[in-house]
Design a protein around this nucleic acid. Sequence first.
DNA 1: TATTTCTTTTGATCTATGTCAAAAACTAAA
DNA 2: TTTAGTTTTTGACATAGATCAAAAGAAATA
Lengths: 191, 191
Amino acid sequence: MILSDFLKTIVPFPQEEITGIVSHFKKETIKKNQNLVKEGQICNKLYFVEKGIGRSFYLKEDGKEVTQWFFIESKMMSSVESFFQQVPSLYYLQMLEDSVVHSIKRDDIDFLFAKYHNMEKFGRLLSTEMLTRVVNKLNALQFQTARERYDYMLTEFPDLSTRVPLGYIASYLGMSQETLSRIRRYDTNKQ
Amino acid sequence: MILSDFLKTIVPFPQEEITGIVSHFKKETIKKNQNLVKEGQICNKLYFVEKGIGRSFYLKEDGKEVTQWFFIESKMMSSVESFFQQVPSLYYLQMLEDSVVHSIKRDDIDFLFAKYHNMEKFGRLLSTEMLTRVVNKLNALQFQTARERYDYMLTEFPDLSTRVPLGYIASYLGMSQETLSRIRRYDTNKQ
DNA sequence: TATTTCTTTTGATCTATGTCAAAAACTAAA
DNA sequence: TTTAGTTTTTGACATAGATCAAAAGAAATA
């Protein structure tokens, strides 16, 4: 889905506003495994993923990566708290495939928020939608077993398992790669 | 803190907007342990906690309660996804002390969002702030030990442990009451 | 202040999941 | 198609934290 269509699915912008908004985005082509943001940097862009798939991940002291979120096609992507509070990011943002994204700078989106009431609404709806998703994951982590968390993942990101390494999904779900592998084996034996 | 002051800490509303907004809120006095919302109901109010403390909790099939969030003084409180998506709430909303809250209905807040650009901004900022908090908890649950999760809680809700039962906090942190008790003992022995 | 009720702590197991290491199964390059 | 590199699976063992049960401590009520 292209950016302008995505915008319209959230708020029914009039065409001239769409044009004004889209003109502040910049198309970027990203190679597989390239980082958009590194830990410690202030993330000053919000991205729309047109093609490809991204993730945010945290690097633990022992060098292990913990995936925090996946960003699939037709979704916005950012290091949320870094972008909105302008503090150093705790996470890396990385594209996992050759990708096409559209980025907008913090200043530009603030300008648009102030200029268009509709844009402010867009920001609000986007935030609450993301909040709902994060709360769903929170529940999975807080009181579900590893098996149940895997089921949660299948509903939130159905086609993920064929596109990204197993270990990325395992850490996203707060379990080891070995455990996820065993769950999956059990699952396929069942059918 | 009273409601109008709280609103101003988020967005610098002009006084006439404050008046217009506050007039849509209704003051409610709630007794200890009273529920504002039950599981299965659509939560059609957003609350501002003026005095007291609330929580949202999930009831598992085995009858155990799992606290999802705490709402302290000068914070907004709701069953977020039920209120914003108008779907049945998965949670109970409960006040844990005799409390004073101010509530606004979904229709009224939508009216205010549409009427005041500032109000839309307020909604957006509130959402992103909540999103940031939820992400912090997510990280604690995803890759921290029980001890570290307890530390997270102390920063997020410093004076909570003296005000609510231990079991509520333990389930909020995704651990058993016994584990939290042992962590706390170890902690006090350290100082 | 006694009595009852609720909450927290402690002790003794148990278990889901982690860790480590090696084998197997893929993928990509030569 | 071989070779080298990467990812996934499997096995053996370790452990953080769960569960169950009972004791101790607080708080509420008579």
